[in-house]
């Protein structure tokens, strides 16, 4: 593992570069194929509404996948991620238009866990349409 961020250069409160991730219906179809999750709530508007959703929603695991990019892009080596967990609090609703939805992700170093292992805990915030879509979103990362 070769993280490009040094443990000694990071403090509690250090902010990671925030990123926005657009998601359209086409994104969801592509993710369904790549992940093997073909639940129709992620591509069939009629079905989604029949089960009580406002519209087609993004796969929770898609949101989880893009959110951690704020961490892996920061640290360089995705293999430096030791732990990652989220709670799915609200769905990301994806309208059937060119813009789709936007997932806005920010992250902060919340704790320096272990000086020997050089691990830090990063707390993530993911929002879409002004709603928090992930809760308890945390990653443990091994730094250089």
């Amino acid at each position: 593992m070769t993280a490009k961020i040094a443990y000694d250069d990071v403090e509690v409160g250090t902010e990671l570069p925030a990123q926005d991730f657009p998601v359209t219906r086409a994104t969801l179809v592509q993710y369904a194929g790549a992940s093997g999750d073909f639940n129709p709530i992620h591509w069939n508007e009629k079905f989604a509404k029949e089960v009580g959703l406002p519209d087609v929603i993004a796969h929770g695991m898609f949101t989880m996948a893009v959110a951690v990019r704020v961490v892996t892009d920061w640290v360089g080596d995705p293999g430096a991620v030791a732990e990652y967990g989220v709670r799915f609090t609200k769905p990301v609703v994806v309208p059937n238009d060119e813009d789709g939805a936007l997932i806005e992700v920010s992250a902060t170093v919340a704790a320096k866990l272990d000086d020997e292992e050089r691990t830090v805990r990063v707390d993530l915030t993911a929002k879409s349409a002004d709603q928090k879509v992930l809760g308890m979103s945390r990653a443990v990362v091994r730094l250089a």
Binding site: G60, M61, A82, E83, Y84, G85, V86, F88, M136
Partner: peptide, 8 residues
């Protein structure tokens, strides 16, 4: 799907 966690 409520929560998801991974420990690598």
């Amino acid at each position: 799907h409520g929560d998801q966690k991974f420990a690598y």
